[in-house]
Amino acid sequence: MADELDLLRTADPVPAGGPHYGDGPLDHTAERHLARLLHDTPRPRPRPRSRRLVWSLAAALAAAVTALAVLQGGPAGTPAVAAPRPLAVRAHSTPVPLADVAELAAAAARDGSPALRQGTHVQSWSLGMSDGRPPVTLPEERVVRWAADGTHTEVVVATDPARPGRPVLTDDGDRTRPVEDGHVLSRRTFPPMWGDAPPYGTPPHDPARLRTYLTELAGGGTRTLTTPELLDATRELLDNWTLGARETAALAALLAEAPGLRPAGRVTDRLGRTGQAYVLDAAPGGRRMLILDPATGTVLGLETTFTRDDPEYGVRAGDVMDYSAWMR
């Protein structure tokens, strides 16, 4: 409910009087592995399935709008949710090279603040697809926090920041239905989970060691990560950890060395934050856009758009395939 959403957003996960390591170890790996099977490995086109498919955050434009016109809720027949459009780079904005952002991130990390925290706060939009029905957008907000005893809690609510107070679509098994903004989809507490391997192990703040960490997160081996693999590993890292300044600087250094990431200019992300966009045009399965805070190197969001039409699933080139926005 809306009251629970307000409590979620105002909660202090690390109160001043709380125990040491009150923000301790985290994760929802089972959830991430499932999501990774469904959407973290981009494909040129969705594989036909008899059941609904979900790609992390996304929105098919025209087809989704058509579906939402049918699935209405709220006063005056207000659609339950609208499909987000691809982020647009501001005209005439000056692109900032990734190397410059990496330098600024390193400077911002000198005092070591803010600190690394295990846990995450992410807003996502999921593209729900099924045979014979147009795709629809399923927005969710997830907060994961850890306790000193190694347990962690995960709260997921249905909400769309672009449409506060409006009904939100959610998936309920084999059907899609509108729910109240802030409706709690799940609240779970997990037993203690410890380990040194990613994503449980603490991410290092040295670029070389962080590259090894992300390689293991992407499946291991001694190979050099491709840029799409680096972006996928970054997504999983941020779905488990809220990076501190030093880890952010190390990640920015790795991204600055990634081939193919083109500085595109300034954008306003889906939470209203200003960032710099970096585009990977030749990515498998879609065009990737990484959004960074240019002053600190913090990853604000990651978007993938389709690069070609797929009439079977009602999507067109340029439609958003997925989007994640991370918060502290």
Rank of each mutant, 00 (worst) to 15 (best):
R52I: 02
P161C: 09
V143P: 00
V279N: 03
V168W: 04
R211A: 15
R287M: 08
A35H: 03
T153H: 04
P204D: 01
T227M: 02
P191F: 01
Y323H: 11
V168E: 09
V168M: 07
S126T: 06
A250H: 05
V54H: 00
R246T: 13
G195C: 10
D281V: 13
D111V: 04
G112A: 09
P135N: 09
T296N: 08
T159K: 00
A69G: 15
D206K: 09
V122S: 02
D196V: 06
A35L: 12
P15C: 11
R163D: 10
L53H: 02
D12I: 08
A35P: 00
D196C: 02
W194R: 15
P198D: 09
G77V: 12
T305S: 14
L57N: 05
P79F: 09
P263N: 06
D174N: 07
L217N: 04
P207I: 04
A82V: 14
S324H: 12
L5W: 15
P134D: 12
A69N: 13
G165W: 05
H39S: 12
T189D: 06
L104P: 00
L254E: 09
G285Q: 05
T176L: 15
T137D: 02
A317N: 00
Y213W: 15
D3Q: 12
W241L: 05
A115T: 13
L280T: 05
W326T: 06
V54W: 01
A60D: 03
A197W: 04
H183S: 14
P207C: 05
M327H: 14
L243H: 03
D160R: 04
A317M: 00
E303M: 01
R273W: 00
A16H: 12
T242R: 10
E247W: 01
G17E: 07
A245F: 05
R51N: 08
H33R: 14
V136M: 10
P199Q: 04
A80T: 06
G165L: 03
L210T: 10
V81T: 15
W241M: 06
A2S: 10
L292G: 09
V279D: 14
A16W: 14
T298N: 06
P44V: 07
P207E: 03
G260H: 03
A277I: 04
T78N: 08
P84Y: 04
V315R: 10
A88I: 12
V136T: 06
A233T: 02
V136G: 07
D12F: 01
D6C: 01
